[in-house]
Design a protein around this nucleic acid. Structure first.
Lengths: 186, 186
DNA sequence: AAATATATAGACCAATCGGTCTTTAAACCG
DNA sequence: CGGTTTAAAGACCGATTGGTCTATATATTT
C-alpha cells in the first residue's frame, strides 16, 4: 500500500487537506472506498502517512546534498539549487506540502504540528552543521555564526515556497539566493 | 457593513478559507443569513473583501513604519519589531492571512492570487526604498544592493510567519532578525 | 476444481456544505 | 398613530462531506 500513500500525497500536495475530497483520493489511489478505509482508517490518518512520506523524501534529499563527507559549500549550493528547481514554474505553483500544512493545520492539528516542527528542527540542524563545517574550513565571512546563519537560510527558504505560489520567476530568485549566500560565504 | 468585514476577516484569519463555514461567519458578523448574502453576495466575495481589508491594514502599517521622512534604519527596525510581535506566542500561532491564502488558494483562485502577488510587490518595493535611502546615507555594508537585500528580507519574513505557526519562541527569532540585519547594515 | 480469502463496486447513512426564500418582528418616518 | 422599509429567524434546498456496509466478483490456496 506504499504506492497508494504516494498517490494520496500527490493529491494533498496539490489541493491541501480540506479541499481534498474522498473521491479525489479514490481516483488517485485507485482504491475502492472500502479498501481505503480498511487500509488507512480515515482521511486524517492517510494524510499523516502522506505527510510522513513527504518528510522522509525531503530528509533523504538532505542526506545526500548535505552529507558530512561532502564539501559543505558545494552541499549548500546543491541544496539551494534543489529548492530553486522546486519553486520554479509549475513546481512552484504547486507549492510545498509542509508549508501548506503548517498554515492550514498546524494550529489545530497537534499531530501535524509535531511533524512540521520536527522537520523544521532537522532541516535547521543539517544546514547549521554544514555552515559549521564551512566555518572550521575558514570559508565563512567574519562574524557569521553557523547556527544563526542556518536559521536565516532555512527561514528564507520557507518564505521562498510562499512567494513561489504567485511569482515563480526563476532567474530573479536564483540571483537572490546567491546574494544571500554571498553575505555568509567568503 | 465595515465592522462585519472586519469580523469576518478575523474568522478567515484564524481558520482559513475552506475550514470557515457559514455558521462561523454568521456568529462572528452577527448577521442573519439573508443579510449576509444580501450585503456580500457569497462566501468568496466576502473573503476577498476580508483579504483586501487585511492588506490595507498591512500597507497602512508600512506607511508609518517605512515612511520616507523617517530615518530608514529606524524604520526597518520598527517594521521588523512589528513582525516579531505578530509572530510571537498566540499571535504567531494564529498565523498570517496572506501566507495562509497564498498556500491555500493562490494556485486555484486567480482573484486571491492577484491580491497576494500585488501585496508582495508593494512590500518589497517599500523595503527596497528604505534600503536604498540607507545606502545613499552610507549605512549599508559594501556590496549590498538595496533591491536584492529587500527581496531577501521580505522573503525571510514570509518564512517567519510559517515557522511561527509551530515555533513561536520570540527571543531566538529576535536574535535571528538582528543577525540578518547585521549582514546588511553597517 | 472447490473452498476460501480479498478486494471491488456502489448503495446507503447522517451531517454539513453554501445558498435561497418566506415569515415575522423591529425600526423608521410621515 | 399608521404605513413602509429593513433586518432577523429559521425553514428549506440540492449537493457534497466523511464514513459504513452489503453484495458481487476476483484471486488465492489447497
Amino acid at each position: 500500500m506504499d504506492a497508494a500513500v504516494e498517490r494520496a500525497m500527490g493529491v494533498f500536495w496539490s489541493r491541501g487537506y480540506h479541499a481534498t475530497a474522498l473521491p479525489d483520493l479514490l481516483r488517485a489511489t485507485r482504491l475502492s472506498r472500502g479498501s481505503l478505509y480498511a487500509a488507512f482508517g480515515d482521511k486524517h490518518s492517510l494524510f499523516l502517512l502522506a505527510l510522513d512520506r513527504y518528510i522522509a523524501d525531503a530528509v533523504a534529499r538532505m542526506d545526500v546534498e548535505l552529507a558530512p563527507a561532502r564539501e559543505p559549500i558545494d552541499g549548500l549550493r546543491a541544496f539551494l539549487a534543489g529548492y530553486l528547481d522546486r519553486m520554479s514554474g509549475a513546481n512552484g505553483r504547486r507549492g510545498c506540502l509542509l508549508v501548506a500544512t503548517a498554515m492550514e493545520l498546524a494550529g489545530q492539528d497537534a499531530e501535524a504540528g509535531r511533524r512540521i516542527a520536527g522537520f523544521f528542527k532537522v532541516m535547521e540542524a543539517r544546514v547549521a552543521d554544514a555552515f559549521s563545517r564551512a566555518k572550521t574550513a575558514g570559508k565563512l565571512v567574519d562574524g557569521v555564526e553557523p547556527s544563526s546563519a542556518a536559521r536565516i537560510l532555512v527561514c528564507f527558504l520557507w518564505g521562498l515556497r510562499v512567494v513561489a505560489k504567485t511569482a515563480p520567476t526563476r532567474i530573479t530568485w536564483q540571483a537572490t539566493v546567491n546574494a544571500l549566500l554571498d553575505r555568509f560565504i567568503r
